Every structure is written in structure tokens, then in C-alpha cells.
Simulated scan of single mutants.
Amino acid sequence: MSVRLGGLSRWSLALLFPVALFLAAMMPTGDVLIQIAAIVLVLGLPLGLMRRRPIAALVIVVISAAVVVPAVHQQFSGRVLLIPLLVLADIVVGNVAAKTPRWQSVTAAVATAVAQMLLAALDNPNGLTTLYVIEILGVVTAWVIGNSVRQRRLYAAAQRTEAEDRAVQAERLRIARELHDMIAHSIGVIAVQAGMGRRVIDTQPAEARNALANIEETSRDTAAALRRMLGTLRRNDLEAGPVTRDPAPGLDDLESLIARTEQAGLKVFLRRSREQAQLPPDIDLSAFRIVQEAMTNVIRHAATDRCDVVIEQGQQMLTIEVTDAGRGVTGHGDHGYGISGMRERVSLLGGDFSAGPRDSGGFRVYARIPMPGEGA
């Protein structure tokens, strides 16, 4: 209701503008200053429409000038009135240029310039060239300023939209990397366990049962992790209560990761530096995922039962190296996103990443991640 009343009051003041302007101009000329002050105050009546109805405000100003000025132009107040009306029209033209499409603002500016020149010719038929030039320059200047404001607004809006799109894309890539690393490792372990169980189910039932138990455990852990992730994604801001997130895995979880990996038949030899200070969450998660993905690729592609993981943590740099003595084609011939995902993680943290066959045989994954606040 208050919004409607506000709009009604603005329209009422704007539509009363020509009447109030005429009355102010027709005041007795005994006190010129009072008359000029009254005209200046009256000029503010249509300004309330400028924010939401810029075209309507301009139409009211131009029509009012076209009606009132001829009626009072022979009086002193009429001559005084012309210049403020021209300035007011230019201000409204700039507002139109700032808030409407270009074709509308250009049309409005041309119509305003024509109306101003006609009023100038009525007020002073002689020496119009200079006056016309001044009026046209005033309209053009107002339109250019308003159009520049509009362009800045459009540019700022486009920048905000682009930033939002980049943020959405970055979040999608982050989720895709997390899902890939989580699922690829689990599926790799399950595939190896299932293959081993199928081969020994007749000759070694106990080993087959162990394989099935490992498959069951890995599947449950993966399903639980997926449910937590999907639940977090589906949670919206309207839900009551704080949003709780499960802690992301880090290097402290390597022991459990290695235990699951060894169930798939891959023996992992881990060597870590003595310094194991708390890492920033993004570096800790990325380091864990790099080791996880590298070991997954060993399981899937290297055709070996051993890999070595070396993690060196210093004050300036965290280095991760995963090597194996397998076929040396880990990640190659594979159309997945394991290697590229690891490279993206390291790149986002400002580090260096390399992955490829070793001269002595096997494959090597190597990542250098600078610590925050330190140079690489």
C-alpha cells in the first residue's frame, strides 16, 4: 500500500507541475527573488518520476514548457523561466539516457532539442544560431553523460554475471573432481576384488569370502560418502539450522586409504617427512586426492603389486611422489580425467605437476605445492 501511495503522490506532483509552474510565473513581480525562488521550487515537482518513469518525466517537462512559456514569455518571469526549464529538460534527458535503451534515449534527446529550439525562437527570434548551438550542445552533453552511466551499469552487470558463471563453473569442476577421485578409487578396488574372488571362488572359498567382504565394505563407504555429498548439494539456504559438512579427507587419512588399497592387492610403501604440521584444508584435501588417484591408476593400469608414496613437507613446499615399477603406462590410453584432475588441483594451488613413464621402468606422479605465505 505504501508503495502505491508513493507512486500516486509522485504522479500527482508531476501532473500538477504545469499548473504550479504557471502560477509561480504569474506571481506579482514586486519581489523578483521570491518569484524566482518559487519557480526553482516548482521545477522539482516532476523529479520524483525520474527514477521509475524517466520517459514520462521528460514528456511532462517538455509539454509543460511548451504550454507555459508561450503564455508568459512576454513577462520578466517568462524570460527567467526559460533557462531553468532548458536545464531541467537536459537533466531529464541524461536520466533517460542512463535508464532506457539507446534508441529510446536518442529519440527523446532529438525531440527535446527540437522543442527547446522552438521555445527559443518564440522567446527571441533574433540571434538564434548561437542559442541553438548552446541548446544542442546541452542536450548532447546530457545524453552522453547519461549514456556513459548506462554503459558502466551494463558493464558492471555483465562483470557480475561473468563472475557468477565462473564461480558456478569452478564449483562444478570441484564437485566433478571429488566425485571422480572418490568413485574411481572405490570402483578400482571393487573391480580388483571381484576379479580375484571370481578366480578363487572354487579353489579358495575363504579368500573369495574375504574379497566379497572387502567389496561390501568399500561399497558401503562409497555409498555413504556419496549420500553425504549429495545431501550437502541438495541442502538450500531456507532450511533451518546451520549447514553441517563432513570434514574433508587429508593426509592424516592416508593410513585408512592405504589399508583399503592393500585389500585390492596393491602393497603401498609410505614414507613421510618428520614435519607434519597442520596443512591448510585446500592443500590437505588436494594432497590426499592426488595420492588416492595415483594409487587408483596403479591398481587399474600398472599391472604391479607395489607402489611407493613419498611425501615431503617443508616450510616452503609440499612434495608428493608416487612411483611404481609396472608397465609405465598409468593413465595413458585411458579416456578418464585422473591425470588432468590432478594437474588441475596442483595448478589451482600454484604448484607444478608432472606424470609420465620413468626411464628405469614404471610410472611416476610428482607434485610440488607451495605453502601459503611462502615463495615456491
Rank of each mutant, 00 (worst) to 15 (best):
S360I: 09
L13T: 11
G375N: 14
R228L: 12
R235Y: 02
I55V: 12
V149S: 08
E312A: 12
I91L: 13
T244N: 10
W11N: 14
G326Y: 00
I369H: 00
A121C: 05
A170Q: 13
R177K: 13
I299P: 00
D165N: 13
P372H: 09
H335I: 15
D202V: 13
R10N: 11
E374V: 15
E255L: 04
L128R: 07
A367V: 04
S256M: 07
G6P: 06
V67P: 01
N147D: 14
V59F: 10
A111T: 11
G44E: 09
R327K: 14
G138N: 09
M295V: 08
A259G: 00
A287W: 00
T130Y: 14
D284L: 03
A97K: 01
I187R: 14
C307I: 05
L5F: 09
D237W: 08
V69C: 04
F76R: 15
G356C: 07
A213N: 11
R174I: 06
I91P: 01
L270C: 02
G195N: 05
L270M: 00
I39Q: 12
G331S: 03
Q35W: 02
E135Y: 09
A223V: 15
D359G: 01
A208R: 05
C307D: 05
R234T: 15
P357E: 02
L43T: 09
R300Y: 00
L254S: 02
A71S: 08
R220F: 10
A303G: 06
Q276L: 08
W143Q: 10
M371R: 15
S9M: 12
A65P: 01
L173F: 13
